[in-house]
Design a protein around this nucleic acid. Structure first.
Lengths: 271, 271
DNA sequence: AACAGGGTTGCGTATCGCGCAACATAGGTC
DNA sequence: GACCTATGTTGCGCGATACGCAACCCTGTT
């Protein structure tokens, strides 16, 4: 375990901080609690190192230890920092009123997402009231090529950046688009029409539609989306969402100082 | 700046991680973006140290740098981890349905908070729909002695732990209780009646009422609260909230496996 | 009773990261 | 424009920091 670390030697980074973050990243929705040994195996560090980092993080409140089992999980101290991070996202605040209205119009779950690297991250949501509904949560993240929001975010990129993102496409379901050619077509269409659709490409049984939120520089800073179970959103139902969705996205954009012409399209020539 | 660090020398801690967290903690709702020099002064570290830690955190996505101004703020990467942390809080999930109902009954903002050290941290909220309302957010935190939720959380402590928390009371407003004797009385009453009230003690103009959420071991794990502008909640209005609030808190407790007798009291002998 | 597995702690060493100082850049003032 | 101040970043070399090892506790199992 001689920390050889072939990982890219960034300009100047702090090893222990990187390790601490790597450890915290091991916790997930599915495995919210982990033991020292388990983590040690996964991040390939010595037990003692992991234990010490965890006690440090525990002292800081970012991690909690269950006194009975000895296992660790992420702590409440993260919430405060995350709350501050959320407050930084202007689009989120601007969108909320419109999201509520959109939710009442469509009766489905409405969400807003931003991009972080090669993933889309949900930063706000208004859950549907229906008993069968699409459930997300703030902080959930998805590949860009598998969701409507992702396509919209891709559509806002410069050509070279888009090209680099088209290189590695991941498949979430068997309906996921993994051909860069096919995806590029969809992204171009999304850029032109001002919305994108996805059916069963991220989770089978779920369909979503998304539209971009633009800021004062006409940059795509977020994607507004409506999603629900595919059986309710088949046929032309999603098409009926286009107009209210785009109205909400446009209104949000205007609040962010966007002054240009929002690319509205009520025509549907999607697959 | 010879890192003399009179700070408590915990068993075994990682200096750079502590520093990284300290830096991240400098960001707040009021100052969501800070420069290296500013942070350097506050945490009393060399500019270069702060800069390097920030670049590390930026690489990890926990921090973002505005390329134009050079200033830093907390990043979206925190959201994912915070989402996992939230999922860990059973009381939150158990409470949500009851919180929605409570919100529709009272038409005021409903929140749920847990304790972290000497503070209460909000972990969920259903905002009121009224235009004048109490606004909170997940991750917001308050002193235990200034809020109804805090008093409820104090009421669930063992005597010795309570005593230690009664030592250092902070004043948020001029109505805040800073006498440990007076606070102890209130806390005892809260333990007996199963709810606590606060008027203008945290923020002037805001009043709240809270009730405890108990788990299968009859431990107080969270506090459910209803809050709003004091002018609407004067007189006996809060008293009318006691029953629906306690019903919601009791139902939540039952979902957590609480089997005992919930300390219900519809009588009011509060000051 | 012995074992296996997990979590924590002393110890000595090498590495990691600190402070220094110099550099690059931006904005303000005369 | 030349100057100055203030900010953010980067080589460099020394020294504290934190790593891996191993031994230690503990709890649950065979």
């Amino acid at each position: 375990m001689t920390a050889s670390h072939a990982t890219a030697r960034r300009s100047s980074t702090h090893q222990s901080i990187e390790r601490a973050v790597a450890i915290m990243r091991e916790f997930s929705e599915h495995e919210p609690a982990l033991g020292v040994a388990e983590i040690s195996r996964r991040v390939d560090l010595h037990k003692s190192t992991v234990s010490r980092i965890l006690t440090t993080l525990t002292n800081e409140g970012l991690v909690t230890q269950d006194p009975s089992t000895g296992r660790y999980s992420l702590g409440v101290g993260l919430l405060t920092m995350a709350g501050v991070a959320l407050g930084q996202i202007d689009a989120r605040a601007a969108a909320f009123a419109h999201m509520e209205e959109l939710a009442s119009i469509t009766a489905e779950t409405v969400a807003i997402a931003v991009r972080r690297g090669d993933r889309a991250v949900s930063v706000g949501e208004v859950p549907s009231r229906q008993s069968v509904r699409y459930v997300t949560w703030v902080g959930r993240h998805f590949p860009l090529n598998c969701t409507a929001s992702g396509k919209v975010l891709l559509a806002g990129m410069a050509d070279d950046e888009l090209a680099s993102h088209l290189r590695h496409l991941v498949a979430c379901t068997e309906s996921s688009i993994t051909s860069s050619g096919a995806l590029e077509l969809e992204v171009r269409a999304a850029a032109y029409h001002g919305f994108a659709i996805e059916r069963d490409e991220f989770e089978s049984g779920i369909s979503t539609i998304a539209a971009p939120v633009l800021d004062h520089d006409a940059e795509v800073v977020a994607a507004l989306s409506v999603g629900g179970p595919s059986f309710r959103l088949g046929g032309t139902v999603l098409d009926e969402f286009v107009q209210p969705l785009q109205l909400a996205a446009e209104a949000t954009s205007n609040e962010l100082g966007f002054a240009g012409e929002y690319p509205v399209s009520s025509v549907r020539d999607h697959v």
